[in-house]
């Protein structure tokens, strides 16, 4: 499915996204990430030694929330599956760092392996305030 325009408008700098993955015992874990999106997917960067990478490598199901900075009660949730690919040139993290901070990303040890997480949406829900829920897909 294509990512709706309402979702894309929020899934970009300077908004932070909250990403939920599944631990080995099936319980949820959340963390904060920088994101970008195109018509087909949401993208964020992580490292191979992070818990969310291990979680997504084992179970690709993911939920991602981004709030409207003008009104945090308005937000979009994207549920879908993550595809992982190595990012040895650190292309995505540098692109996101520039978008979010205006600067190159900090140095990382050479053994830190960057990964591109591509979340392909299966369900997109837009919450426009209390009681105003729209299923965009």
């Amino acid at each position: 499915m294509a990512l709706p325009a309402e979702a894309r408008a929020l899934l970009t700098a300077p908004n932070f996204a909250f990403v939920a993955t599944l631990q080995p015992d099936g319980s949820p874990q959340t963390s904060i990430v920088w994101v970008k999106s195109d018509e087909e997917a949401v993208y964020f960067s992580t490292l191979k030694d992070r818990r969310k990478y291990a979680n997504l490598a084992r179970d690709p199901r993911v939920s991602l929330i981004v709030q409207d900075p003008e009104d945090p009660q308005r937000y979009v949730e994207v549920r879908g599956r993550a595809a992982l690919s190595d990012d040895p040139e650190r292309t995505l993290i540098e692109e996101l760092a520039l978008a979010y901070t205006g600067k190159p990303f900090r140095q990382e040890a050479p053994d830190k392996v960057r990964v591109i997480v591509r979340v392909v949406p299966e369900k997109v829900v837009h919450y426009a305030g209390p009681g105003q829920v729209r299923h965009l897909s």
Binding site: F18, A20, T21, L22, G26, S27, P28, T30, R61, V62, S63, L64, I65, Q67, P72, Q73, Y75, E77, R79, Y127
Partner: peptide, 18 residues
């Protein structure tokens, strides 16, 4: 501060809301 809560759907998929 607004918080994001994540629960599990019956099939184990994560679901989040504010």
């Amino acid at each position: 501060n607004f918080a994001t809560v994540t629960t599990l759907q019956p099939d184990g998929t994560p679901h989040s809301s504010v």
